[in-house]
Design a protein around this nucleic acid. Sequence first.
DNA 1: CGCGCTGTTGAAACTTGTCAAAGTTTGTGG
DNA 2: CCACAAACTTTGACAAGTTTCAACAGCGCG
Lengths: 247, 247
Amino acid sequence: MPARNVTAKISLEVIKTACSNCNLRELCLPLGLEPTELERLDDLVSTRRRVKRGEHLYRASQPFDAIYAIRSGFFKTDVLTEDGRDQVTGFQMAGELLGLDGIGTEFHTCNAVALEDSEVCTIPFPQLEGLSREIHTLQHHFHKVMSREIVRDHGVMMLLGTMRAEERLAAFLLNLSQRFTARGYSPAEFYLRMTREEIGSYLGLKLETVSRAFSRFQEEGLIAVQQKHIRILDTPGLKRLMAQQGR
Amino acid sequence: MPARNVTAKISLEVIKTACSNCNLRELCLPLGLEPTELERLDDLVSTRRRVKRGEHLYRASQPFDAIYAIRSGFFKTDVLTEDGRDQVTGFQMAGELLGLDGIGTEFHTCNAVALEDSEVCTIPFPQLEGLSREIHTLQHHFHKVMSREIVRDHGVMMLLGTMRAEERLAAFLLNLSQRFTARGYSPAEFYLRMTREEIGSYLGLKLETVSRAFSRFQEEGLIAVQQKHIRILDTPGLKRLMAQQGR
DNA sequence: CGCGCTGTTGAAACTTGTCAAAGTTTGTGG
DNA sequence: CCACAAACTTTGACAAGTTTCAACAGCGCG
């Protein structure tokens, strides 16, 4: 029964939760690693964790000891201040990393909440530093990921600092569309995992303003909205609107 | 003449431009390094560069090959988009690092402009990665610095997303005050190196709004303004105003 | 010494927020 | 599987805050 053995081996490989056979490896931390290096990363990323919709992956002020790679699902991160302000700082999807904010202080500085049932890979940080001292490619890629996060934040600052409501929402939709595309989903049709209020918080707007902007886009034939279901009908139109120069 | 030799040696050490004898080493990259490790960093940070007021340290789209530690002076970073938007993403002072945005794309993604005659230490990035593969403390500290930059950006997002004009300006002044304090300057009295327009760009406001807010603060006895010279008269008052809860 | 850049101030216009009411969807428990 | 409550969304009218436009003052640099 050699054939049977082979089958067993294959199925074992398939269930093994490892970067080596993760279809996100080109988006995620392992990008560019050699097979032998990948295996070493596998050893490190042994723990996976399920997070149900609405549950926290971590909370601000919890001790930081690991970063997380999203394997499936959708998250938001938000910051709360003592005086009660609340700002969504980002929405994260499969292949993206969570927890980078905690390295600097040894404590998480924001909350990470699952917006749908999700699964993450836990990457213990001290061990990641250890491995990246040995694997140059991993080290460099990790630095790139952190740097891109800074650049992304600059983009959000630009959005919040210079765009008006409709421009912000257009930018938001185009950004989502582009990220869904990179993951093999439709660029033009998707479900929003977050509420109008969460979108508003991210964009520095009130939920009513977000809702009105959606309605306006629909009137103008740019998108079709049905609650959380979005169809983009006129991508160039959205881009034009976004560049329209606000305040 | 042994005495003479000693003197010569000392003065040589003093002029040597090295992290070992930089008075910013507790604020900057070398934090926490052992003397022997410091020396290795010294070898790396051999080049210094003067940047005159108004000159660019680097520009968006230039190839990235080094990060910079500010030895003296004051900088702003800003991002320009194709559609002509312009946003100041930060103001940097002695001991802070510039250029982290370039790691992710191998190109700088923003402009760094000196707001006064300044001096920076050039840290070639590939060599920094090399050294941080060998010196664990350096590696970890560098990661902390990047992480803190992300957290700082979240703070700006909070500011832009949830605060009204006067709250933003109060937060800005308190932040500057705190950073000057950390560098041994007065917490209550300083010169702004940037124009009202640059402050406005950073805070997502028009220069007129910034000017009005300054006037209002002065009327209320919170600060004394004379052009770029600021005296903070009522720090608790500014803090209260900042927490006042805006929109 | 004057020109230009920077800053201040006022009034009007515009954008977004606030408050309120009603409609819709989702989830839960009977 | 239905009913009901809670959460979310939409829409309107009005208020508030910020920008825009404009005029003028002041400082600093050449």
